[in-house]
Design a protein around this nucleic acid. Sequence first.
DNA 1: ATGGTTTTTACTGCGTC
DNA 2: GACGCGGTAAAAACCAT
Length: 334
Amino acid sequence: MTSTTIHQRDRTVPNTEQERESAERDACPECGGRLVGDDEHAETTCAECGLVVEADAIDHGPEWRTFDAAERDSKSRVGAPTTKMMHDKGLSSSIGWQDRDAYGNSLGSRQREKMQRLRTWDERFRTRNSKERNLKQALGEIDRMASALGLPKNVRETASVIYRRALKEDLLPGRSIEGVATASLYAAARQTGVPRSLDEVASVSRIDGMEFKRTYRYIVRELGLEVKPADPVQYLNRFESEVDLGAETKRRAHELLSTAQKAGVTSGKSPIGLAAAALYAAALLEDEDLTQDAVSEISGVSTVTIRNRYHDLLAAADETQALPSNVSIDGATA
DNA sequence: ATGGTTTTTACTGCGTC
DNA sequence: GACGCGGTAAAAACCAT
């Protein structure tokens, strides 16, 4: 990640001192007059007739503005420059440093001391407010996403605890508030045993998936969070509630899952895939009307994975002869 | 950075309604 | 002929080293 691409758009506009001088010596194509470089407006103009030879050649804006669309959408992604150094974007007033009153007269020593105290407190309040506002926004965001995902209150609380820790440990600078908020929520959901997949969380977040995963890993590492691999059963429960199935089918699905877990064929496999496969396999055994495509739809797992996993599940079930021996699994064993 | 594992994508053939 | 299902190869994503 070098920054080489940022400034090398058009080298006809002078960057260095020498280049600018040479540019000034060039002649205007219109009237032959002297050309003048204007850094402020990124233009090269003719001193005689005012013709603008080069306009908007170089973006003089701060480079942290221009990386991708998501950044432009949410100003809050600008980490250190605005949120830390200029948390209020320079909008709030502050107490000046000169010991002068509004008319420019200098203050007496008593007044000077008073102003000094006020300055101290003014500074304290302002930085404090910024952190609080920051936190408030993050918590609001967490709340919004949590309700969109139908997550219970304790998850939000866990998420906010995680977020506060991140804030305390100075993990925020350089990262977006929303990114950390999203990551906190995802981690909290998993820790509290109500997992949502990365995709699901990403879909209700304002930040893109890549960024989300990156910040998630980051805060898990930095905070030393303990996040155990998600339990497939949790996913299974949720998938079951999204389709209309008989009670026996659901029982079966759980059974398949637990025998497979005991058989040890589940380690390393994605919990979501296992849950989806268990659901499909159970429906198959119970002659329910449930296609692989449907399961894939609600679980976000490809049909290929469902096939592979459900073969594993049935094989495991066969070996542990957990199936009642008189039940025929027509065709499913092949 | 690299290699091994898992998942996805894309394409195929088969049987059925 | 569309649909559900199954298999495969190659690409992509993920993870630990």
